[in-house]
Simulated assay, not measured.
Amino acid sequence: MADAGSLINWSLLAFDPPGWGGVMLAGLWQSLQIAVGGYTLGLILGTGGAMGKLYGGPVTKDLLEIYTTLVRAVPELVLILILYYAGTDVLNQFSALVGFGPVDISGLAAGIFVIGVVQGAYSTEVLRGAIKAVPAGQIEAARAYGMAPTQIMRRITLPAMLPHAIPGLSNLWLIATKDTALLAVVGFSELTLVTRQAAGSTKAYLLFFCAAGVLYLMITLVSNVLIGLIERHYRRGMARAA
């Protein structure tokens, strides 16, 4: 009976041609760049969104409510298609209107923008909930002590909210790493697309898709270790649940 080694051509994962290992690692690097960039942009949007929802005026709150509701209601694949194609078209039309030529947007920048907009809506709600979880007495005591709003945010609100925000934000990071796979539908050469190309060229579908699954799993495992270290650091001194 033939063993697994004779049924699977492991040389196809070699880093040098005709192996596809190097191509898959390049796709993984592209996926990581999009995930990090999109997650960072999402944090920036989420921070502004949370502050706007908590402390902004009625118009600001209504606009942010529309943004978060729409993004969370529409499937992420549909959002990616809308933002990627419609967003590029709108930008080019605006560029033509002001007298410039067509804008050549890199796939990396477009991918970061798309993931960032999606992440921003979820980050807004995570951070808003974390800020509201800070005991009001701490904020009132800081004001009574004479602290400026920036000092209150830096020394009271931020340290107190992080333990509440980290679980939700860590989950959003893992979602961002997997959402990069959706960019394959718009032709961006991230891990999923190059895996599909490799499998289609060699017909070794099981080998390449299992290899891609292992790479995604490695990202998750490493992320979980780092998230655990960060969470333990910011939960120092907090009472443990019984």
Rank of each mutant, 00 (worst) to 15 (best):
A2R: 09
D3Y: 11
D3N: 13
I8E: 04
N9R: 15
N9V: 05
N9Q: 15
W10M: 13
W10T: 13
W10N: 08
A14E: 14
A26L: 06
Q30S: 07
Q33L: 15
V36H: 05
V36R: 02
Y39C: 01
Y39G: 02
T40R: 06
L43H: 02
G48V: 08
G48C: 13
G49L: 04
G49R: 06
G49E: 12
A50Y: 06
M51F: 15
G52V: 02
K53W: 08
K53A: 08
K53H: 13
Y55I: 06
P58Q: 11
V59R: 08
T60R: 09
K61V: 10
K61T: 11
L63H: 05
I66V: 14
L70M: 13
L70N: 08
V71R: 09
R72C: 05
A73E: 12
A73D: 12
V74P: 09
E76N: 14
V78G: 09
L79G: 07
I80S: 04
L83I: 15
Y84C: 12
A86F: 14
G87W: 09
G87R: 02
G87V: 14
T88I: 13
D89E: 10
V90M: 10
V90Y: 11
N92M: 06
F94C: 11
A96C: 07
L97E: 03
L97W: 15
V98E: 01
G99W: 05
G101D: 04
G101N: 03
P102M: 03
P102I: 06
V103D: 05
D104T: 11
I105T: 13
I105H: 04
A109G: 04
G111I: 12
I112R: 01
F113T: 15
V114L: 08
V114N: 00
I115D: 01
G116A: 09
V118N: 12
Q119F: 00
A121H: 09
Y122V: 05
Y122F: 14
T124A: 06
R128L: 06
A130R: 00
A130V: 07
K132D: 08
V134K: 00
V134I: 03
V134M: 03
P135W: 12
P135N: 03
A136Q: 06
Q138F: 10
E140D: 03
A144D: 00
Y145A: 05
A148N: 02
P149G: 14
P149A: 14
T150C: 10
M153L: 12
R154L: 11
R155L: 13
L158K: 00
P159F: 13
P159R: 07
L162Q: 00
A165C: 10
I166D: 03
L169N: 07
S170H: 11
I175H: 11
A176G: 11
K178P: 10
D179L: 14
D179E: 13
D179C: 12
L182K: 02
V186S: 09
F188T: 14
S189G: 15
T192H: 07
T195W: 06
Q197I: 15
A198E: 03
A198W: 04
A198I: 11
F209G: 04
F209M: 04
C210H: 01
V214E: 00
L215T: 12
L215R: 04
L215M: 15
L217S: 00
I219W: 06
S223I: 04
S223W: 05
N224L: 04
L226I: 10
I227W: 00
I227V: 11
L229A: 03
R232E: 04
R232D: 08
R232W: 08
H233L: 15
R236I: 14
M238G: 03
A239E: 13
R240A: 14
A241F: 05
